[in-house]
Design a protein around this nucleic acid. Structure first.
Lengths: 186, 186
DNA sequence: CGCTTTGTTCAAGAAAAAACGAACTAAAAA
DNA sequence: TTTTTAGTTCGTTTTTTCTTGAACAAAGCG
């Protein structure tokens, strides 16, 4: 176990994807699956855009580009990640629902595959990453509204207006999520 | 000038908002404008949710809560920011269109006020932060499509499917921005 | 013109986020 | 029951991002 510890010191942009079926250069570097590599880069870019760690993009991309479930250790090895990052990355992807467990009879290890239905991915992301933020946002808004009504003194009329503005923003933005879901659902 | 350099060592959660009209405690600490402070916190939270630096939220919040334009140095002083952060923060907010210059006759300094129309804020954010990312995204997708058609060999059929999936995602997501704008515009 | 005020830029430092990896739990194999 | 395998947790290190502050431009003023 852990034999190939030091070999894999190449850039993680050219991970050893799928040992199976690999044409290799004379030097033994896998040259095939440039497509898979490109797919992984695609998802790395995407996760960074939406503010998720790069490793999530790598893991999801690897699974997305694979036609069979991949087990924990292969994810770790092929992407050259640490155990910790692999474990935590898979956990977070599982929470979002972007990745599913596949039980393989006679194999004790966890195998994973990618969920590829856009609607589910977006829904999971919203549930895990944005809904909690919206809660904190509502809380602050409530606190602000309370401050204006609670306090006895007649406050700066501008602040009244501005908080009214915030309330109107909030009501508009609340409409966004359902519409977003409907746009991507078909 | 710069008299109050050291005094302002309190938390930046209680900036000296609007010297004018301030009730103060016996100790001289401004107790009024707890509302403004709360508004600033609101925007700090918001900028962090959308992946912008906290200082942008502070600056925008300060201006949003003010009924008059504020000049560069007051922004800097009231929020206890460095010159650099103030300059760069205001620049980025200007680029997004979240903040506007007000020219005040007889005063050489730059005065700023907040743009409060949600539509413009969102449009500016999309233009500055999202659109550039989408470009990189398109580029990668194009590259992937090219890889599949370009290369002579018959590749893994799964990869074909998966890249087709990416294309369908892209076409769905492209519909999102216009719809988003229309939802928040009224 | 030189001096002061106002703001920008950018290298360096500080803070925050992500990844690592050793120590640990749990469960199967021996 | 002891040993091995599989995966998680969490304190530490690394990387990335943000902020700072000094050097620099640009423009009014004396």
């Amino acid at each position: 176990m852990e034999q190939q510890e030091e070999l894999q010191s190449l850039s993680n942009l050219t991970p050893t994807l799928h040992r199976r079926s690999s044409k290799t250069t004379a030097s033994g570097v896998p040259c095939l699956d440039s497509v898979a590599t490109e797919i992984i880069e695609f998802f790395v870019h995407t996760t960074q855009v939406i503010g998720l760690p790069k490793s999530l993009g790598e893991i999801y991309g690897l699974l997305f580009a694979s036609d069979r479930p991949i087990n924990f250790d292969d994810v770790k090895t092929q992407l050259n990640l640490s155990k910790g990052a692999t474990s935590q990355g898979l956990k977070q992807l599982r929470n979002i629902g972007a990745v599913k467990l596949t039980y393989i009879p006679g194999d004790r290890r966890d195998y994973y595959h990618a969920e590829t239905e856009l609607k589910k991915l977006v829904a999971g992301f919203l549930r895990e990453q944005v809904t909690p933020q919206m809660a904190g946002w509502d809380m602050r808004l409530t606190r602000l509204n309370d401050m204006l009504s609670d306090e006895d003194n007649e406050r700066n009329p501008l602040l009244d207006q501005r908080i009214e503005k915030l309330n109107s923003w909030a009501s508009k933005l609340r409409r966004v999520v359902p519409v977003l879901m409907s746009v991507i659902s078909p």
